[in-house]
């Protein structure tokens, strides 16, 4: 009796350890997988993550639960991902350049660095969008800049978090147009929406995905896409390049990553399942509805993109910190 209990215990204990072994990958996944999103529910990262989770579940053969850990521009969620057990049961959405700027800001004392994550597969590239409420007096970027010049520091522009891509976009715009905004940091697209729609802030620096439907319905008005080309979802909204703001180029990419130390064979299983889901026709259709542009990247390509973003973000973050 005692002997049997011991073997039972030992067997179950062994499967729970986190050391890499081929036996684990064969069994993986044995139980539901958590997918941490570092932003609140309802934001565009969350929307994309939920679509992806629902699609990848079928290929992975286990439930994928999206867990929102919003706050501090994603730092709380990213910290959680980095600190999670590297057993493949906790994955997370990596938002670039948010991950990078957090690492680069010394005041934040980030509990993770570039090497804390294994970028597995990218899902979305969402360009930035400057938008206002549907009945706003600002009809174009020029109107907005004029107003900001007339009353420096009075026009309230909101971001989805300090040092987010949106924050960098505001800084880029301030530099390019030589104007000054009053920057208000929210921590999710939902709060941004509430802020602009409720008239508490004047303009949102946001991403295309979260707002497409409201621009179509006239509730909101898009002023510019911070990209070199127009967005296919908003063919009537000019891009910053054509408006002459060639340095105001900002976007957010989102993909699935795992904490450092996750066994390579498990990473492979995840990559295969998620990539298959991202490339499916169903995914494309759903993401089109959500206004999110797909940009699948895996392996070396994604790793290089991750490293490049880090280098690029370094420049902007140092600049942002200097302005503080």
């Amino acid at each position: 009796m005692i002997l049997r209990r011991r073997t039972l215990l030992a067997a179950s204990a062994a499967t729970a350890t986190t050391i890499a072994s081929p036996a684990i990958a064969q069994n993986y996944p044995r139980r539901p997988v958590q997918l941490i999103v570092a932003f609140a529910a309802g934001g565009s990262t969350d929307v994309g993550a939920r679509i992806l989770a629902a699609a990848a579940e079928k290929d992975l053969g286990q439930t994928i639960t999206v867990v929102n850990k919003g706050g501090a521009g994603g730092q709380i969620g990213f910290t959680e991902i980095a600190r999670a057990r590297p057993d493949g049961y906790t994955l997370g959405f990596l938002n670039l350049p948010a991950v990078n700027t957090i690492i680069l800001d010394p005041e934040r004392k980030a509990a993770f660095n570039v090497d804390s994550f294994i970028p597995i597969v990218n899902q979305v590239l969402d360009p930035g969008l400057i938008w206002v409420k549907g009945d706003s007096p600002y009809k174009s970027v020029a109107d907005l800049i004029d107003a900001a010049k007339k009353e420096p520091g009075k026009i309230r522009a909101c971001t989805t978090g300090i040092l987010s891509d949106d924050h960098l976009a505001i800084l880029m715009m301030q530099e390019a147009a030589k104007c000054e905004f009053r920057i208000v940091h929210f921590d999710s697209g939902t709060q941004q929406l509430a802020g602009v729609m409720g008239g508490h802030v004047d303009v949102a620096f946001d991403n295309v995905g979260s707002i497409v439907k409201r621009i179509e319905s006239g509730e909101a008005r898009g002023l510019a896409v911070t990209d070199v080309v127009r967005s296919k979802f908003l063919p009537n909204v000019p891009c910053t390049k054509e408006l002459g703001y060639t340095t105001v180029i900002s976007s957010s990419t989102r993909g699935v990553g795992a904490p450092k130390g996750t066994p390579a064979d498990i990473v492979k299983v995840i990559e295969t399942a998620f990539l298959k889901a991202i490339n499916s026709a169903d995914m494309k259709q759903k993401m089109d509805v959500a206004g999110l542009a797909l940009k699948p990247m895996v392996g070396a390509e994604y790793a290089k993109y991750y490293a490049d973003t880090q280098a690029q973000a370094k420049k902007y973050t140092e600049w942002a910190l200097k302005m503080r």
Binding site: R6, L9, S12, A13, A14, A16, T17
Partner: peptide, 12 residues
């Protein structure tokens, strides 16, 4: 119920 409980390291 999918709740993880400590397995204990002396068994591994």
């Amino acid at each position: 119920l999918d709740v993880l409980l400590p397995a204990g390291w002396i068994w591994s």
